[in-house]
């Protein structure tokens, strides 16, 4: 019995044959070494696929995914899919980029600060400088105080990204400002009730596919600064609101 085609053989391996057809293959296997080898290979591939992907079942589900299913943030969970695609793929890429950028955090951050120092005029716009440190001012300060990432205002020039508590216990928020040139940065709650800006830089928009554009929401220096500070996960919608209600303490 040598006329067993690939489709039949794979159906056998995948448990798709009825009992009679499977019994015919069983019988042929006993005296057909080549057939037996093909069956072994097909089974080995299937086993290898399972060995590779089944461990995903036991991984903890990331907070950003399970948070979507909590009933209390329906408007965050049920956004239209076109926007979701863009935002969704960007969100994960930011996480991935953070992993890779850790070692360069300090270097990238200092470059960003330097870049800002070169073209920033103190006293103007959304930033004030005090004792050599940058603080949010004007509209940026207001947005950091009030805006919620879970309830974005499409008309607002300043958009809040991640909110999280840093290892030093202070709440930090990433933001982008569609100013000219566009800015992005990290703001951390200051002891005096303001927002210090440890990282502020130009928000570049490199060319590329959708995924890369979404990933460019935050420049690497900001991502790296988030990595260097974050403790635990970024806030979900409810935690963000609670933090605002508590005055970002």
């Amino acid at each position: 019995m040598n006329a067993i085609d690939e489709d039949t053989l794979q159906a056998y391996v995948d448990g798709e044959l009825d009992a009679a057809a499977a019994a015919r293959i069983d019988a042929a296997l006993a005296h057909d070494d080549l057939l037996a080898r093909r069956v072994r290979q097909a089974r080995a591939l299937r086993a290898r696929m399972q060995a590779t992907f089944d461990p995903v079942l036991d991984e903890p589900v990331p907070e950003r995914l399970s948070a979507l299913l909590r009933p209390r943030s329906p408007q965050a969970a049920a956004t239209p899919s076109a926007a979701a695609g863009r935002r969704g793929f960007g969100a994960g890429r930011r996480r991935a980029a953070r992993r890779w950028l850790l070692p360069t955090a300090a270097a990238a951050a200092s470059i960003a600060v330097l870049a800002v120092a070169l073209w920033w005029r103190p006293g103007s716009g959304p930033v004030r400088v005090h004792d050599g440190r940058q603080f949010a001012a004007g509209a940026l300060s207001v947005a950091l105080d009030r805006a919620l990432a879970s309830e974005p205002d499409p008309r607002a020039p300043i958009r809040i990204g991640l909110t999280f508590r840093g290892a030093d216990g202070r709440i930090c928020r990433t933001f982008t400002d569609r100013a000219r040139p566009p800015l992005a940065g990290l703001a951390c709650r200051d002891g005096a009730g303001g927002w210090s800006l440890p990282v502020l830089g130009a928000a570049e928009r490199p060319a590329g596919g959708e995924l890369r554009q979404a990933a460019s929401d935050l420049p690497p220096a900001v991502q790296a600064a988030v990595d260097a500070r974050i403790r635990g996960d970024a806030f979900d919608a409810q935690q963000e609101r609670a933090a605002r209600d508590a005055g970002w303490r």
């Binding site: 299913l69 049920a78 899919s81 969704g88 793929f89 994960g92 995924l211």
Partner: peptide
């Protein structure tokens, strides 16, 4: 991994919507 979890997020959003 990052693409896969982005995909999961999109799927959940679409499923809910």
């Amino acid at each position: 991994v990052a693409d896969a979890d982005d995909l999961v997020q999109i799927v959940m959003e679409r499923a809910l919507a």
